[in-house]
Design a protein around this nucleic acid. Structure first.
Length: 789
DNA sequence: CAGTGAGCGAGCTTCCGCTTGACTT
């Protein structure tokens, strides 16, 4: 039996460290926290100094009993959880739960998993820092109190099963606020002038732009007219050097942002893939807020840069974290071995690894150097100058390996036509020939909707949430139905272009698509409803600065300057009375709007949230005739739907005639417009207005789909025509009546027998429940309650 | 992928942060 037991948080870490320490040390992992507050409402005694009741959750029992046994047998137990609030608390929980003794327990910390760092840590052990532990307890208790007092208020005043919390409610608020900013945004049009010149020598052309825009078409038109017979010359020519420096290596949040922009990963996917890379020993820990690289890593990066690119490309850089509330228990995310430019693995692992490798290597490379040229073009008939700018890269530096992309909302407002490319050789005073000049109507853009990753970025800036919770938080607000990640079709907008060409000015109307979105965060009606309720009654809690404020107090507790129970007292007393007050006095939250009166029936038209989601209603429950209902569609919200849009909803479903003695109905479902015929669904091709579908069109669509379905069939089983192998979206699968069966990996598709199909059908888990897995939530809860009994 | 939009009313829901698998899909 080993003399020393060393406990860290993560098993992958344990494995690495064991290799450094030799056989006197047994290194084990606690798998994160081993204790938590008990589940129900009596975990915290708010009357009695916030005394807590902890328990070991069932999935941690095995690990705790194993650690207990090992601790008993060891001469010395080293608690090596992370050096932050949570890590310190983990050590304390271990100390308490494993029944450790002061004189054979040591607390050590390190920021990087390298042999010298670990040996150094072992040489300088300390004791558990109870101030830090108390700060964590205050954090934990505050979050429980906020979550478990606010949520029941929502159950009573809004809808059961809803949730609220210090982090998630602010995340939702950001999305709701942004949506409202966009809704009230008025796009302003202005004319942008772009000229294309010949240099005169040869046929070289370049582009120049007017820095100001004209609000009125008349002004723009006047400008072009003035240019009709003007002469143009280079007034000034300025060249100056410019530099670009590399970004710091990745933290959790910057990795999520770049993987989203460059690879199109959701934040959850990024974390899954990163976890695999970490477990395979390819990268350092992926949940970190630190941009710091260890000295050994800096050296290794240097060596690799010298070897692969040469000395000119290297520059030693140290990065400092500036994000609020960073606890820096780990290094930045970097490859464990810089010499491995790529790795084996699946496509997503390879791509994410390369991103991490490039970013980390680039962070230790020299600046990219440019020469920026700005030429000002004078117009003989006007005082304004047109500006042409170009950029030449003189030295690529870090750009040799890495180019950081930027978010939509940080792009220059001048669209992308002013690309910084090379200008032809120019001289001051040089006369130019105008090839073409355009005045294009451009519109100002509303603030960008959040993507998952840009929402994480915003949360991090506000100091809300931690690297380990960013991805789960983004999932939670979507799972609760507060926010959806969706595509939205844009609208077609007209704009005017005036063109001066060959001595005349022409006007044209063009169209563009505006407001189209992909994978953006939209609030739902229930998200808006809950948010507005919380903002009205608990302004302090879902204030963007609430976390920052309490974090400051947690820091004071950690430094021993404040009693944690005092801090909680100060928070809880007013908070709890707000909760009581709201429960007693607040109206039930509703979000109902009267849109107008239906001209045909004379009944009122209103929108509200119903049991199955947002709906429009014509008439009221008191009427003799039952009200008519219609669900809102994707992209429509109670807050913004118009009377006309609402009335449109009642035009569908619409019967479009019969085919094969069965009715055909056109309607709109979750996946868009479709035709329903004989209990089958046929989606409408894009571009056909569901309101205009004719009987003939519908029949064509049905037959086309049938034809395609036949083409998908690979084989029908003789024993049963209901059983067949088909080509699906992800490859072949077996259709067996209403069951869709997965073909086990490695099966030879051509050799599948009917017996195989029967066997698979039997073991198909969906067959037993009868229905397809429609309501996973209800199934989960019933499973849980069944377990309890 | 539809339509549904009522009411009965026991027992349940819920937080944030630290970690992985064991589960489906």
């Amino acid at each position: 039996m080993a003399k020393n037991l060393l406990i860290v948080e993560s098993p992958a870490k344990a494995k690495t460290i064991e290799g450094y320490l030799g056989k006197d040390f047994l290194v084990k992992s606690s798998y994160g926290h081993i204790r938590d507050l008990v589940k129900g409402d009596d975990a915290i005694d708010t009357e009695n100094k916030f005394q807590q009741k902890y328990e070991v959750p069932s999935d941690k029992k095995a690990i705790v009993s194993e650690l207990k046994k090992l601790a008993k047998a060891a001469e010395m137990v080293w608690l090596a959880s992370d050096e932050d609030r949570e890590g310190e608390a983990i050590s304390w929980h271990l100390f308490e739960t494993l029944g450790l003794k002061e004189d054979n327990t040591k607390r050590i910390v390190f920021h990087e998993i390298t042999k010298p760092a670990i040996l150094k840590a072992i040489d300088s052990p300390r004791k558990i820092d109870y101030n830090l532990v108390n700060a964590q307890q205050a954090r934990r208790v505050l979050d429980r109190l906020v979550g478990f007092e606010l949520s029941p208020v929502l159950w009573r005043k809004v809808k059961p099963s809803l949730s609220a919390g210090r982090v998630q409610s602010v995340a939702v608020r950001l999305v709701v606020d942004r949506e409202r900013e966009i809704n009230k945004f008025n796009a302003e049009a202005a004319y942008k002038i772009v000229a294309i010149f010949y240099t005169g020598k040869g046929k070289e052309i370049f582009k120049a732009e007017l820095s100001k825009r004209f609000e009125e078409k008349e002004e723009a038109s006047k400008f072009l007219k003035d240019c009709l017979n003007a002469s143009f010359a280079i007034n000034s020519l300025e060249k100056k050097p410019a530099k670009r420096t590399p970004s710091a290596p990745f933290t959790t949040s910057t990795l999520q942002q770049e993987a989203s922009r460059k690879l199109g990963f959701s934040v959850a996917r990024t974390m899954q893939v990163a976890q695999r890379l970490y477990e395979a020993g390819r990268i350092t820990y992926m949940r970190t807020d630190s941009v710091n690289l260890s000295d050994t890593a800096i050296q290794a990066a240097e060596q690799e840069i010298l070897k692969a690119y040469g000395e000119k490309y290297h520059k030693l850089r140290k990065y400092k974290t500036k994000s609020a509330g960073a606890q820096e228990a780990h290094e930045a995310i970097r490859p464990t071995y810089f010499s491995e430019h790529t790795i084996e693995g699946d496509a997503s692992e390879k791509r994410l690894y390369e991103l991490i490798w490039k970013r980390a290597i680039a962070s230790q490379m020299s600046e990219a150097e440019f020469e920026k040229t700005v030429a000002k073009v004078g117009i003989s008939t006007r005082s304004e100058e047109l500006i042409a700018s170009g950029e030449v890269m003189k030295f690529d530096g870090f750009l040799k390996v890495y180019f950081e992309s930027i978010d939509e909302d940080q792009e220059t407002a001048t669209d992308n036509d002013s690309d910084n490319t090379l200008l032809p050789p120019l001289e001051k005073g040089q006369q130019l020939t105008l090839n073409e000049m355009t005045a294009t109507e451009r519109f100002s853009r509303p603030p960008a909707r959040y993507t998952e990753a840009s929402l994480v970025k915003k949360l991090e800036e506000l100091g809300i949430g931690r690297p380990s919770t960013y991805a789960p938080t983004i999932s939670t607000i979507q799972n609760r139905g507060y926010v959806v990640k969706e595509e939205r079709e844009g609208k077609i907008r007209e704009f005017t272009v005036l063109t001066l060409n060959s001595g005349e000015i022409q006007e044209a109307i063009k169209t563009e698509v505006t407001g189209a979105e992909r994978n953006k965060m939209f609030p739902t009606d229930i998200g808006v409803l809950v948010n507005d309720f919380l903002v009205e009654h608990f302004k302090g809690i879902i204030d963007f600065n609430f976390t920052a404020k309490v974090e400051k107090e947690f820091d004071e507790i950690a430094q021993g300057n404040k009693e944690w129970t005092d801090m909680l007292e100060g928070f809880y007393i007013p908070f709890h009375s707000e909760v009581q007050d709201t429960l007693e006095n607040a109206e039930r939250a509703t979000h109902e709007r009267e849109l107008g009166v239906d001209t045909i029936s004379g009944k009122p038209v209103s929108v509200r949230v119903g049991r199955f989601g947002p709906l429009v209603q014509i008439g009221t429950a008191e009427d003799e005739e039952k009200p008519r209902f219609a669900s809102l569609r994707k992209g429509q919200m109670i807050e913004t739907i118009t009377f006309e849009e609402a009335m449109e909803l009642f035009k569908l479903p619409k019967k479009v005639g019969e085919y094969e003695e069965k009715e055909m109905t056109v309607a709109i479902g979750r996946f868009g417009p479709y035709i329903r015929h004989n209990s089958a669904f046929y989606s409408l091709p894009k571009g056909i207005d569901p309101l205009d579908v004719t009987q003939k069109q519908a029949i064509d669509i049905i037959n086309e789909k049938r034809q395609k379905d036949i083409e998908k069939i690979i084989r029908v089983f003789d024993e049963n025509p209901e059983a067949r192998i088909e080509n699906g979206r992800w490859g072949p699968f077996v259709r067996f009546g209403k069951q869709n069966l997965k073909i086990p990996k490695g099966t030879d598709v051509s050799a599948i027998t009917y017996e195989d199909v029967l066997k698979w059908a039997e073991s198909d888990p969906k067959a037993k429940t009868g229905k397809s897995a429609k309501k996973t939530t209800t199934r989960k809860t019933t499973a849980k309650t069944a377990k309890k009994k």
